[in-house]
């Protein structure tokens, strides 16, 4: 009933672009294995981000995911004293467990599908991270996600609560000189299914603000997703990640290609 068997968010877990969903990758099939790969490019005013990865869903119960992100400082690397095109990379290992509910089939109750998950992140620029006030190059996020398809309204809604120390998703490390504990952040998203092949939606995600050298803001996106068939999806979005590393108003395009079964 959903147009695709899976979509991945920027950290590799089943979800939209920025927001994590409670759905398990390959949720079309409760009796087997589903998989999804993604390649995502985000072009911002002063930076760019590439992400690729995959997710495997087991019996609509457990999801394992991996993503690698490369954040390119482009010309801003020079002014930041890091060098042109200096890159921050990060590996993200995720696991998600569906606790209750069936977002797609339970159309006769208000109960959403609820899942919990963990994302372990390893950034590669420990020295720079400590120089800018970050406390660690490794961190672990914990989240609970609720998703519900309101099929009679053709509307998919998600909300996620996350405990995280990550600076800019973890690319700039974890914890900081301003705040070193876990912050509670949230993600909200909604998508309207226009037809079998097209969905329009919006996402919003708050982030911690741990580093005193540069402010960090919430992120949002407005997206259109196209599903030519069950196995392929493409998402094009306008994304605003706020200020990043002293560079204000980082906006641009988000483009993601996904393939799965």
């Amino acid at each position: 009933m959903l147009a695709t068997g899976g979509a991945s968010q920027v950290e590799g877990a089943g979800g939209g672009g920025l927001a994590t969903w409670a759905m398990i990758t390959g949720y079309g099939s409760r009796d087997g294995i589903g998989a999804n790969t993604h390649f995502t490019y985000v072009g911002l005013s002063d930076f760019s981000l590439k992400s690729y990865g995959f997710a495997i869903g087991l019996h609509d119960r457990l999801e394992l995911s991996y993503a690698r992100q490369a954040f390119d400082t482009e010309d801003a690397g020079i002014t930041l004293g890091l060098g042109q095109n200096f890159k921050f990379n990060q590996d993200i290992y995720g696991i998600k467990l569906r606790l209750v509910g069936d977002a797609v089939h339970d159309q006769d109750t208000w109960l959403p599908q609820i899942s919990v998950g963990v994302q372990h992140k390893r950034a590669d620029r420990g020295q720079v991270i400590r120089l800018i006030g970050g406390r660690s190059d490794r961190g672990t996020d914990f989240y609970a996600a609720a998703s519900k398809l309101f099929l009679s309204e053709s509307l998919l809604v998600n909300a996620t609560l996350r405990a995280t120390k990550a600076n800019q998703f973890g690319l700039l490390g974890f914890g900081g000189d301003r705040e070193n504990g876990y912050s509670a952040t949230y993600e909200a998203s909604a998508a309207y299914l226009l037809n079998k092949h097209l969905a329009l939606g919006a996402e919003y995600r708050t982030k911690p603000d741990n580093l005193s050298f540069a402010r960090e803001n919430a992120a949002y996106s407005l997206f259109a997703s196209v599903f030519p068939n069950k196995h392929i999806s493409m998402t094009l979005a306008y994304v605003d990640l706020g200020d990043i590393a002293l560079h204000p108003d980082q906006r641009g395009i988000y483009a993601s290609l996904q393939a799965g079964f």
Binding site: M1, H105, Q107, D108, E153, S154
Partner: peptide, 16 residues
């Protein structure tokens, strides 16, 4: 499409 989804919403719980 929106009418299709209204019928499917009535059938989906029968999955159980």
């Amino acid at each position: 499409f929106s009418t299709q989804n209204k019928l499917l919403a009535l059938l989906a719980p029968m999955h159980r």
